[in-house]
Structure formats: C-alpha cells, structure tokens
C-alpha cells in the first residue's frame, strides 16, 4: 500500500496529463522546498544520497508513534528535480507506517517525472527514494 499522503501527491500529478503542465507542477513543488541549514541537517557521508549529482542528504527523526519525519537537504541551486522530489518524499512519507515506506517502489521516480527522464537523472532521484526507505528500515 502506498502511504496515503504520497498517493495524494501522485493523484494531484495525474491531474496534469500534459507534460508541460506536469513540469510546471513539479517546479512549483521544487520552489516550495526550503533547504535546511547545516545545523538543521548535518551533511554527513552516511546521509549523502549516492548516485545523485546534486549534493543531496537525508535524515530522519522519530515521532512518538514510532513513525519518522524525513528531511532532505539539496545543496545545488540547479537541483530543481531533486528539490521537487524531496518535497514530495518529506510530505508524503513523514508519519507513514514504516512498512509502507519500505514498500514504496523505486519506480516512484518514473511515476512522478515520467519516462523521459534521462538515465542519470532517474537513478540519482531513485537514490533519494532508496535512502528514505533505508531510513525506515533502520527504524524498525
């Protein structure tokens, strides 16, 4: 089962079958992303997303109910795709049951961005999904 909040994002994006409109929606999400300072989210080697050309870092913190808040840092002013995905993952996965987060498909990247994403870009973004899932697996 896809975490309900993540599903809401996907449903919203499906409202834009036109590629240009979807790109605009994703850009809007990316522009909403607020990059945390190094104090708020330390950039550690363990938290660095592998394969992502933008410098992207992930961390998580536990909620009282045992779920996690997921946070990303994107240290690349041109990393608009990474920012958009970070915004989706932070809002879509935070508070979701850990087993649901672990079951999120890596193909989420294609669902969000479409198949026309280049190989390198898709794999970097997939790394962000995998790192969020890894955070969930560590918390179980």
């Amino acid at each position: 089962m896809i975490p309900p909040k993540l599903q809401e994002f996907l449903d919203d994006l499906h409202l834009f079958p036109d590629r240009a409109e979807r790109i605009q929606a994703l850009i809007s999400l990316g522009e909403e992303f607020e990059n945390p300072s190094t104090t708020e989210l330390p950039r550690t080697p363990q938290g660095r997303v592998p394969g992502c050309e933008s410098e992207v870092f992930v961390s998580s913190s536990p909620r009282p109910d045992g779920t996690l808040d997921y946070r990303f840092a994107v240290d690349n002013p041109q990393g608009i795709s990474a920012m958009a995905l970070a915004r989706i993952l932070m809002a879509g996965l935070s508070g979701a049951p850990l087993d649901q987060v672990q079951e999120v498909s890596d193909d989420l990247v294609y669902t969000v961005f479409g198949r026309e994403l280049s190989m390198g870009k898709s794999l970097g973004l997939t790394g962000m999904v995998r790192m969020a899932k890894f955070e969930a697996s560590r918390a179980i």
């Binding site: 240009a20 790109i23 605009q24 994703l26 850009i27 990316g30 522009e31 041109q78 608009i80 795709s81 958009a84 961005f113 026309e116 994403l117 280049s118 390198g120 870009k121």
Partner: peptide, 9 residues
C-alpha cells in the same frame, strides 16, 4: 540540459 525541469524553471 539533462534535467528536464531546468529550462521551465
């Protein structure tokens, strides 16, 4: 670009 969002942004 490689990034498909970059031009539109």
């Amino acid at each position: 670009n490689e990034d498909p969002l970059l031009y539109s942004s």
